Amino acid sequence: MIRVMPRHGQRRRHPIAARPALASLGLAATLCVSLGACTPGTDLHEVPSYDPHSYVLGVDDQIRVITYDQDQLSTDFRVDAGGKVAVPTLGNLQAAGLTTAEFAAEMTQALEKQKLLRHPSVVVEIVAYRPVSILGEVARPGEYPYRPGMTLLTAIAASGGYTYRAFEGYAYVVRQEGDHTVTGRLSPGDFVKPGDAIQVYERHF
């Protein structure tokens, strides 16, 4: 029987010698998962739920005003940085924080107050919403157009899907609520709000 002896100064590694290290790594991973220490964003709270039917206008929204039988008062507008819309003959009208129906009522009242029309009929609809920003572990990070009824999952799909490193349980979101900003956790089935900035985490294991 021929034995191959290790050369001088070379230590022979036995397969069993690697087992304690692998066992320790496996134990660490188990503890990490069971304790939640390796799950990103565990200290985040759920952001307030968003109802797409209760949407209020915000900065950079593009709206279309239709005033029946008044072509000069029927056009598209963009909500400016001050939350207002510059309407010909009416001046700057507050739009941010109002629903489309509320803004239509405000414009109707302004037309009547200035006696420009006796019985104006105004309808307001949204042409383009504020975009949604999707960053982190997605295939194509960037800004994407908001679509009514968009959820976190459909927003991720719009950005090309998760990367292989992505944590898919939830995402971090920065959201504008009225005159203040909130941050928190967004689950896959939660509705996305126009203007949301979403960060998809990298998983640790």
Rank of each mutant, 00 (worst) to 15 (best):
Y162F: 09
G169Q: 01
V132E: 02
E102I: 05
N92D: 12
S133W: 12
K113L: 11
H204C: 12
H53E: 01
S133V: 07
P145Y: 04
A28S: 08
V59E: 09
R13P: 09
A155W: 02
L90N: 06
P194G: 06
A157Q: 02
C38F: 11
I63W: 04
A18R: 13
R118P: 10
L93W: 15
A166G: 15
H45C: 00
A157I: 05
H53S: 04
Q94V: 15
D61C: 10
G184S: 15
V123G: 10
P88Q: 09
P40V: 04
E202C: 12
P148M: 08
S121Y: 11
P145R: 06
T108W: 03
S187V: 14
G83K: 02
T30D: 11
Q10W: 12
Q62W: 07
G161E: 00
Y55F: 14
D80N: 11
S159F: 07
Q199E: 15
Y129S: 03
R13V: 15
T75I: 05
L153H: 12
T181D: 10
D76I: 14
T39G: 09
Q72E: 11
Y164R: 06
H45W: 08
R11K: 11
P145M: 00
I156K: 10
S121F: 06
V87S: 04
F103G: 02
L25R: 03
T89P: 13
V85G: 06
D190V: 01
V173C: 03
A29W: 13
L31P: 06
I198P: 08
L44A: 08
L93Y: 15
H180R: 15
A155I: 01
Q176H: 09
I16D: 11
A104Q: 01
Q10F: 13
